[in-house]
Design a binder for these strands. Sequence first.
DNA 1: CAGTGAGCGAGCTTCCGCTTGACTT
Length: 793
Amino acid sequence: MSKNLVIVESPAKAKTIEKFLGNDYRVMSSFGHIRDLAEKGIGIDFENNYQPQYIVTSDKKKVVSELKKASKEAEMIWLASDEDREGEAIAWHLYEELKLKKDNTKRIVFHEITKEAILHAIETPREIDIHLVDAQQARRVLDRIVGFELSPVLWRKVRPSLSAGRVQSVAVRLIVEREREINQFIPESSYKVNAIFKSIDIKGQPVELKTELQQRFSNKTEALAFLEKCKNSGFTIDSIVTKPAKKSPAPPFTTSTLQQEAARKLGFSVAQTMQVAQRLYEAGKITYMRTDSVNLSDLAINTSKAEITSMAGQKYVHTRRFNTKTKGAQEAHEAIRPSYINVHTVEGTTQEKKLYELIWKRTIASQMADAELEKTSIYINISDSPYQFIASGEVIVFDGFLKVYLESTDDESDAENESLLPAMKSGEKLIPGEIVAQQRFTQKPARYSEASLVRKLEELGIGRPSTYAPTISTIQNRTYVEKGDRQADKRDYNVLKLIGDKITDKIKTENTGAEKSKLFPTDIGIVVNDFLTEYFPEILSFDFTANVEKEFDHIADGKTQWTKSIDKFYKKFHPIVEDTMKNSERQVGERILGVDPVSGRQLSVKIGKFGPLAQIGTAEEEEKPVFASLRRDQSIESITLEDALELFKLPRQLGELEEKVMTVAIGRFGPYIRHDGSFYSLPKTDDPMEITAERAVEIIEAKREEEKNRLICSLGENGEIQVLNGRFGPYFTCEKVNYKIPKGIDPATLTFEKCRELMAAQPDAGAKKKGFGRKTTAAKKTTAAKKTTKAKK
DNA sequence: CAGTGAGCGAGCTTCCGCTTGACTT
């Protein structure tokens, strides 16, 4: 039995620390927070000065009882959770829940997991900082009030099961507003002029010089006029300017920058990055992956230095301390770095290897020398014109950190590969090979990717490293936002080319605006956002979090009582909730597009019970309205009258087969033919608008043929077991439950008895569906319920 | 697996941050 019990948050951390501390210390983990506000109801006692009603969370009952037992056996208890608001609260909850005593409890903190740091912490204990704890309670209670009062407003006014919150609602707002910017964007064009000059270099070799005119022309007339003038112009090198430049390495990774770089360089989703990083962390290969700090421990800096020296030499070393600039950063940990800098690669999956390598390179590079560059510009005069052509080149004089790592950017647009320029002298005359004026357009703003949304949230100080990935999932699970691709649009552009004294004028076509894996708002997302921003502008404002953070800082400093702060907020907020509940309309996002030319009735779009729909006529009219669902790629916000009218061309009658009508329509699962109560999906190659009766008959007969071959045999007295051919191979079914047939058994030889045997071996067959991979509390409850029923048996 | 857009009006849903499992398909 150990004399000392140390409690930290993470089991991986506990394992490491235990090694440093020796036999007198037992190190256990709390697995994060152990208590939270009661789940049922709001969990706050409004009658009693906002007293929080804490309960031990169901998944922490076991941990808490183990900790309780261990704490009774120990002589001294060391609460070693992180030194930030949440960490302090964890320590306090432990103190309360484990019923610890002041005289044998100590609070210790360290920012890096090194032996030195931990021993130092043990020597300098303190008490729990109750003001910091109060700041956390205020944060927790505020989030609960906002979330649990706003969400029911949405259930009533928009749709059940929706949610709103301080973080997620602002995240959705960013995406909705970006989409509007894109929709409203009007591209402007101008003419960019490039020239290629021919010359002879010092060695007498022919060389080409690629240049761009410093001036862009706003229209074709000006561009043409310039080219006309160039026909008779002379071109002379005016000057050659060489300037030194340098590039510095980026700081080591935080959660947010790791997510961004892993997305750009490795194509990982935000959640994927965190999963892979978690595995590396648990294996002891990297430091903690949820951090907002760019700080490295002395140990890490020193080992980096040694590593760089042996790898590349002393002159590549340049150690640095980076400062965290992020709003609201709490810096309880180090930056994300390899645990052992001298380990360059790790064993594991491809993903783990790649992510580790990225972390290693970024860490090492951050302690390396600046890259030194030489930028050269050649300025070329044009006779009779005030403008100049410029050729730019860049040469790396000393690679420095670039030897290892270069940070990526989001817009990998036309980053022209600037390189070495040919050696030339000023005064030299040049002959133009060709001069091209090309029409260029201003770019639409880019939609957010998961990672760029995280960067934006971090910039606004909204959310924490531990919540970036879950927030991205939440707004997608609530169907406010969808991840998707955008096909490129074709766009014509004009190219004017001067060769010799001849100008050609051509129209070319380019693809533009293609986007992959970006976040799009849904109609529901737009309606919810517009509703919330109208009625709750303060909560939805981009600086709401920053403002409440200031308030929390006052509480942490002991200047404000946390309940007073909450009271001030609640007294203002709650009446708005009540008023909105009572006085606002139901939100369906209706837009009137115009009039149906056939019936003369109004055509509108809105959100219906089953999603976005278009409607001809109104409910008030005597004649019932006609409805049609919007397609997946259409939205209420941007659909045109023309496209909406197109929707009403289906369902379409195709003629008859066996005296029954065939109709073609588009359903939830795509286009289908309906005939005699049966459904036949259309292959992707058939267009429901174009399909003929003959083709429809073909599809129906093909499906019937397949059906015929489906049944392999019926077993049992009344055929209660059927052996069938399915999409994934043969299987059998009994009382609507499907069972697998193990490999190696010929389905045709199955007997009734053998099937009963196979059924007994698959007790869980049919007991799935439902959850659909979502981590909801509901899903957790059903699995828990399953376990208990099993136990009873 | 499937074509709805209305209506009886039960009882349910929801937040943000801290941490890891335990599950199939």
